[in-house]
Write a protein that binds this DNA or RNA. Structure first.
Length: 716
DNA sequence: AGCACGCCGACT
DNA sequence: GTCGGCGTGCTC
């Protein structure tokens, strides 16, 4: 009786393919194995997700598995189940999730290689080739290349077709060669018990907080927790839990935002955790990643620290998943596969029957709400605030920077201290507007109004970063374009330079910092005290390793409140709180918040450092307007290069949702506010319901068969 | 993802 | 008339 294997391939396919298992491989093929299988002309690595004796009903003659690549299953059943559920919940094919989970070097596959035939060589010498053919032949004359390489090098519009023609004429041959795994000798490292040298003191309060979590870990059951409190105390609890887990040979996955994984932090963790620590992050080379994987699989790591990608760490016997800085926005809106790290961490913990410990000093409102309701909130207390906070009511002030803030800056400058100011708008003035017809120049790709950068005399699209020289006259009516004054960081910098002559002021924005050298130069300059005042957008707030200052200013955080986003209150709160992270410890440090909405609770409570105060009012607002967590919201994004195509897809999706007859409110489609990548059109559709089941019931069928790039984010 | 097939406009 | 653009569909 033949054995059949259901294999998930690392491609955007919606179901596994079935292969027969040759008798000689039967003993080695297991659920979770990597296998090399034929697909069309290619051979590639797939993952066995099921084995069965019965032949499936498809009438195809099944191809055999070519090779089993592992002695022991590559994925544990838990990890496999996790990726399957993640695939379902993120509407991403399982194979794509698996591909993202694995170091690329572990996915062998055939690679096409194009080489010139003797006949082709002859034709090249005799000059009987067409222009395009000759360019290809020139490249192939010294040695074969991959079609991809040719694609990059040859300026041909349709290279595959060109190659097909050349192949027909026998000018070239295309071979599929298997990229071999470099069977390096295994680094013979002792796989003995991992030694963690952990000795952390934990006061009685924290010890008590950790006890509930330890109980769950001992039972090997899933249970969520939210550690609410300052970073230092959270970390103390984490390390206590890690030590306890290690003592029972349990393993820990420790997720942090990408940004906070700085070399300094990695060093700190290494000091604390020693050899038993594995690190996974995006800047590693394939080889490094592979080595860390090996280490984790071979049980030589007790703790894995990393962002997003560490979610897939192949830890055996996982007892604890830590998700620190739970509120961090990059957990949901990062590049790559469209899933929310918070949701994914929960699924992983559920499948592994591990404890899930989320930590934050200012959790997302949804998370805090459910933690309190579900009684898994652990309050670690507040930090005693040392900094002085001033809320500057800007409604009657003039200029860009409040006179009171200016006096404070003056004071700091005299003491030779540095200042950081945050202002969440780039450039000089936001846009140009025609004085006659009211036309505003917009980006023809993103449809956003173009920002006017006075210094460079350019109009810049803040979504796709394209810029065009600023023009003086309206392209429509030839009327004169005037600057609509709404200042950005450049204007602020200019005002400060005027006010404080000889003062060194620099601006820091994501586009400004696009060139890494420039970004580094700015940061180093600030470190060396060559810059007195740094004015930056939100991207500066995400910059690790700046030297602490004694005065930080936040200008107009209320601008965030105008965003069409139900989380804007939380975002404003977090922006203000992020300024506090740049302060030097001590009573002389100050934060000034200059705002025209000093009475808004997000701003007032952020100034007071009162998360609970903020939460109570925000949750009231959410309930009033029926936003998450009191309703269920799906934000669906469609993107692609072809605007018409993207729009048509979105419209079809909306039609399907409306035709479903389900009780769902539909908002959109509308142009998404920010393009993630250059030149990609993004269209957004929001759905709102009272019941989660309704949302799930309508999303899958409505997205069925939509192959263009899409992402779905669910709230809460 | 690759890759083949098959259908319409512009040029050897 | 062919070339060559790209939308559509298939791969166990």
């Amino acid at each position: 009786m033949t054995l059949y294997a259901d294999v998930v391939l690392p491609l955007p396919l919606d179901r596994p393919y079935t292969y027969s298992v040759p008798v000689e491989l039967e003993g080695r093929a297991a659920v979770g194995s990597r296998v090399l299988v034929p697909l069309g002309e290619r051979r590639l690595t797939g993952f066995v997700v099921g084995l069965r004796k019965k032949k499936p009903r498809i009438s195809l003659k099944l191809k055999p598995v070519a090779e089993v690549l592992d002695e022991k299953p590559f994925f544990t059943p838990e990890l496999l189940a996790f990726t399957r559920r993640l695939s379902r919940s993120s509407f991403t094919p399982w194979g794509e999730i698996l591909r993202a989970a694995v170091p690329p070097s572990l996915l062998l596959r055939t690679r096409a290689s194009v080489s010139l035939t003797p006949k082709g060589k002859e034709a090249l010498e005799q000059g009987t080739l067409s222009d395009e053919e000759r360019r290809v032949a020139d490249l192939l004359e010294p040695r074969p290349h991959s079609p991809l390489y040719l694609e990059r090098k040859v300026q041909a519009k349709n290279l595959p077709a060109l190659l097909a023609r050349m192949r027909k004429k026998e000018l070239v041959i295309v071979e599929k060669k298997l990229k071999l795994v470099s069977r390096r000798e295994r680094d013979e490292l002792s796989a003995g018990p991992t030694q963690l040298e952990l000795d952390f003191s934990l006061d009685e309060g924290l010890r008590k907080a950790a006890r509930a979590i330890l109980e769950v870990m001992a039972k090997k059951a899933f249970s969520p927790f939210l550690l609410f409190g300052p970073a230092g105390r959270r970390e103390a609890v984490y390390f206590h839990l890690i030590r306890e887990a290690a003592a029972r040979s349990g393993r820990v996955l420790y997720l942090v935002p990408e940004i906070s994984l700085t070399p300094a932090l990695i060093e700190k963790y290494k000091r604390k955790l020693g050899d038993g620590l594995a690190i996974l992050h995006s800047r590693m080379t394939d080889r490094q990643r592979e080595l860390e994987w090996q280490k984790i699989k071979e049980r030589r790591a007790a703790v894995v620290i990393g962002p997003r990608s560490a979610l897939f760490a192949p830890l055996p016997d996982l007892r604890l998943v830590i998700l620190d800085e739970e509120q961090d926005e990059t957990y949901s809106q990062q590049e790559g596969l469209p899933f929310d790290v918070r949701k994914a961490a929960r699924i992983r913990a559920e499948e592994e029957k591990a404890a899930l410990v989320q930590g934050s000093a200012a959790p997302t409102v949804e998370s805090f709400y459910s933690a309190r309701k579900g009684r898994f909130l652990i309050d670690l207390g507040r930090e005693t605030a040392t900094a002085k906070v001033l809320l500057l009511d800007f409604r009657r002030a003039s200029g860009l920077v409040d006179p009171r803030l200016k006096r404070a800056i003056q004071d700091r400058l005299e003491k030779r201290e540095q200042v950081i100011l945050f202002f969440n708008r780039r450039g000089y003035a936001s846009h140009l507007v025609c004085g006659r017809c009211g036309h505003v120049p917009r980006c023809d790709r993103c449809d956003l109004s173009l920002a006017y950068h006075k210094k460079e005399g350019k109009l810049v699209c803040h979504a796709c970063r394209r810029s065009v020289p600023a023009v003086l006259n309206c392209p429509r009516c030839k009327g004169r374009l005037v600057v609509r004054m709404s200042a950005g960081i450049e204007a602020v910098a200019e005002e400060l330079r005027t006010s404080f002559l000889g003062c060194r002021v620099e601006v820091f924005a994501a586009d400004e910092a696009a060139r890494k050298e420039k970004k580094d130069a700015l940061l180093r300059g600030f470190e060396r005290k060559e810059i007195d005042i740094l004015v930056g957008t939100q991207s500066l707030a995400r910059q690790p390793g700046l030297p602490p200052v004694t005065l930080a200013g936040v200008l107009h955080p209320e601008m965030i409140l105008h965003l069409a986003d139900f989380r804007s209150g939380q975002k404003a709160f977090l922006l203000i709180r992020s300024a506090f992270h740049f302060l030097r410890e001590g009573e002389t440090s100050e934060v000034h918040i200059q705002t025209s909405a000093p009475d808004h609770y997000s701003i007032r409570e952020a100034a007071r450092g009162d998360y609970l105060g903020f939460f109570e009012q925000e949750i009231r607002f959410r309930r009033l307007l029926d936003y998450p967590p009191f309703s269920f919201l799906a934000e669906v994004f469609f993107s692609g290069e072809n605007a018409r195509h993207v729009a048509a897809t979105a419209r079809m999706f909306v039609t399907r949702v409306k035709d479903s007859g389900k009780d769902v409110q539909v908002f959109g489609p509308s142009v998404a506010s920010m393009a993630r990548k250059r030149g990609l059109f993004r269209v957004q559709v929001n759905l709102k319901t009272r019941r989660l089941e309704t949302l799930n019931g309508v999303l899958s069928p409505s997205l069925k068969g939509i192959r263009s790039e899409k992402s779905v984010f669910l709230f809460p």
